[in-house]
């Protein structure tokens, strides 16, 4: 589903991502862990076609993001770490706007917007301008907007920040549903307990370089992910 092959991204003379390679299969939830400034957001942004990169390749369903970015973007959904969206629109107008961009049919958008806004308990607030939304409400709106075109791959940067416990639980369930229906999830998080429970595979990154990756149980090897992570980032 997603292949990151030898990805290198350089800012000035600093390598933000250094020859990183990851492969994510259909049905996998892949957690991406690292300290602040490790290169997680940069990697995710490269996968979403937001940032150009200096070396390497990224493929989604075998399609190169460099050569055919539009086709790749039709298959993915990206949720940024900060839900900065158009505050001059109301929630419903934003969702309709996103549905237009992804070419979602009228019937489907009506059904899915109703479904997901009900699930996230945002329906009553959809007429409000986004400028009056709280951080958590914006995050819910971004999550809903990411789901309405039925993406095959979801790239999520710190998706649980700002969500209330119920919405977090709902999102985790939706992530599992997407994977069980043949999709895949690649997400970054600082909440190691969530990563440990939710992810099929985990990658730990430090200073732009991958230091360990693999199945969650292999990475943790009977220890907690927190212990493994702390040991790896301090000692490797």
């Amino acid at each position: 589903m997603l292949t990151i092959d030898n990805l290198t991204k350089i800012y000035g003379n600093k390598k933000a991502v250094d020859a990183l390679s990851i492969h994510i299969n259909k049905g996998e939830i892949y957690g991406f862990i690292g300290h602040n400034g490790a290169g997680k957001t940069t990697t995710i942004k490269c996968c979403a076609g937001i940032l150009n990169f200096d070396e390497g390749e990224i493929y989604v369903d075998g399609i190169s993001i460099k050569e055919n970015p539009i086709e790749v973007k039709k298959r993915i959904a990206y949720i940024p770490d900060n839900p900065e969206i158009y505050e001059f629109l109301s929630g419903i107008k934003y969702l309709n706007f996103i549905a237009d961009i992804y070419g979602v049919s009228e019937n489907e958008r009506n059904t899915l917007i109703n479904k997901y806004s009900d699930i996230f308990e945002l329906t009553a607030d959809l007429a409000k301008p986004i400028s009056e939304y709280s951080h958590g409400m914006k995050q819910k709106l971004v999550v809903i907007s990411a789901l309405i075109h039925k993406p095959r791959l979801m790239l999520l940067d710190e998706p649980f920040v700002g969500l209330d416990p119920k919405a977090s639980h709902t999102l985790k369930q939706l992530m599992k549903d997407i994977c069980s229906s043949g999709g895949a999830i690649f997400f970054s998080t600082h909440v190691l307990e969530v990563a440990e429970k939710l992810c099929d595979k985990i990658a730990i990154i430090r200073n732009g370089a991958l230091i360990v990756h693999g199945k969650t149980e292999e990475v943790t090897a009977n220890a907690s992910l927190e212990d493994v992570f702390l040991e790896l980032v301090e000692n490797v």
Partner: peptide
């Protein structure tokens, strides 16, 4: 807050092309 000021009434959403949607967004902005 704006409690009570905005009441959402469900209505059928109509589709537009991406460029038209972006044009409308510019207009609203």
């Amino acid at each position: 807050g704006s409690a009570g000021k905005y009441i959402y009434k469900q209505r059928h959403l109509t589709a537009a092309s991406p460029r038209k949607a972006l044009f409308i967004k510019e207009f609203k902005r």
